[in-house]
């Protein structure tokens, strides 16, 4: 089963590369990755689906949390969470197959977003496994072309976000942070 890591990150150039770098440095493939801004435009929410051994996943998440641009990285695999994916599909459909296709789409809660003489464009949202089934069914009707968004997930439990406070400094400031001791979170 795929595992889901959810990250809250600063919306800065290079942040994506740092995060994926934690996985690619170990030679892991990313199954899916979505990223978009949050209510705070300076932050982005990222959902990464991976297939990683559980102990290493904890290690990977710790390393992600260590990144300066990452405010929070959490493991949603075993937490109360909802995960959804969106799919857009183009179906070539001869006229006689169209009613059946529409019926199937309705069963899966999919919506027709475009219709032409060649066929339909259909939009569906759901759990990834459900979308897999939908794809299998629609394949029976002929040529299809599919684009999937990758998973987006939201944690259902409130999560405390620990952020570091601003560090006042620098008037009459002389270096050597070490002598001054380390920052206390």
């Amino acid at each position: 089963m795929l595992q889901i890591i959810s990250l809250l990150v600063e919306n800065k150039p290079g942040a994506l590369m740092r995060i994926t770098g934690v996985l690619t440095a170990r030679g892991y493939n990313i199954e899916s990755l979505t990223v978009a801004r949050t209510l705070d435009p300076e932050l982005s929410r990222m959902t990464i689906a991976v297939d990683v051994d559980p102990t290493l996943r904890q290690q990977v998440i710790k390393q992600m949390n260590k990144l300066i641009n990452v405010l929070q990285a959490i493991d949603l695999t075993e937490n109360a969470a909802v995960a959804r994916e969106m799919l857009l599909m183009r179906v070539r459909a001869p006229l006689e197959a169209r009613p059946a296709i529409l019926k199937e789409a309705e069963i899966f809660g999919a919506r027709v977003v475009d219709s032409s003489v060649d066929g339909f464009a259909v939009e569906a949202t759901g759990e990834p496994e459900k979308l897999d089934e939908f794809v299998d069914v629609m394949r029976a009707y002929g040529d299809i072309e599919v684009t999937r968004s990758g998973m987006v997930a939201v944690c259902l439990e409130p999560r405390k976000l620990r952020l570091s406070a601003p560090i006042p400094k620098l008037d009459n400031y002389v270096g050597d942070h070490l002598a001054k001791g380390v920052l206390n979170a």
């Binding site: 990150v9 600063e10 949390n65 990144l67 300066i68 641009n69 990452v70 405010l71 929070q72 620990r162 952020l163 570091s164 406070a165 601003p166 560090i167 006042p168 400094k169 620098l170 008037d171 001791g181 380390v182 920052l183 206390n184 979170a185």
Partner: peptide, 16 residues
């Protein structure tokens, strides 16, 4: 103008 403070909200150091 000299910088009066820096802010790295995601940089967490648990020192104690």
């Amino acid at each position: 103008a000299p910088v009066s403070s820096i802010h790295l909200p995601g940089y967490k150091v648990y020192a104690d």
